[in-house]
Design a protein around this nucleic acid. Sequence first.
DNA 1: AAACACGTCAACCGCTTGCTG
DNA 2: CCAGCAAGCGGTTGACGTGTT
Length: 209
Amino acid sequence: MDIKEVKPRVKKGLWKPEEDVILKKYVETHGEGNWASVSQKSGLMRGGKSCRLRWKNYLRPNIKRGRMSEDEKDLIIRLHKLLGNRWSLIAGRLPGRTDNEVKNYWNTHLNKKNSQHKTTMLGPNKKKEPQQLPPSQPICSRNSENNNEGLHGRKDEEVTIKSQQMEDTKSFNFDVEEPSLLSANNALFFYDDEPFMPIWDSFAFSEAF
DNA sequence: AAACACGTCAACCGCTTGCTG
DNA sequence: CCAGCAAGCGGTTGACGTGTT
């Protein structure tokens, strides 16, 4: 009840363009991190979490917005099958997409669709196409922005993946660096990967370390 | 045209994890 | 080893837009 006890009071709700500008400028000059102090230092009356989320999901460079491509949809479905609800892991393989976006997309578009799909897939015509990843459709149109990082240093001859997808996903984002496994068994690209679940799961789990 | 239902997605919340002193 | 803090993650909520009656 003491007025002094009143907390700084953070603002909630949708971000305004001007807030975005402030946050963006702040991060560009000061760098990411220390989100708790961003609100004070930048003058934004937002919580650290909120700032972080906003930056991560919308303001960060290389964020890809807009509709998911067929490739991306497909990849999400597969990865979800393998990884479950580990959205950040899934998003880590989708250049320019965030975990929140992937999660939302799954919940709205794919979740139901997939359940239908699954039932149909169980039928005799389950192989609707062994998903030979559409060859010439890079998942990320802004490829060039991302893939010049070092991660594709392994130009493994066994990168049998035709599409550039995996390269993209590898090179994108965080430190997802297990390409050997990823590309080696390439379980992602089996249309029926149930059997890989435990393997992949444990792998994905350890990957997190 | 209005009311309602439904879908979508940005943002919040609480919990977990990792780091540092 | 432990406590405190910051960051990350996934689930959930709520506002808004669109479609339907």
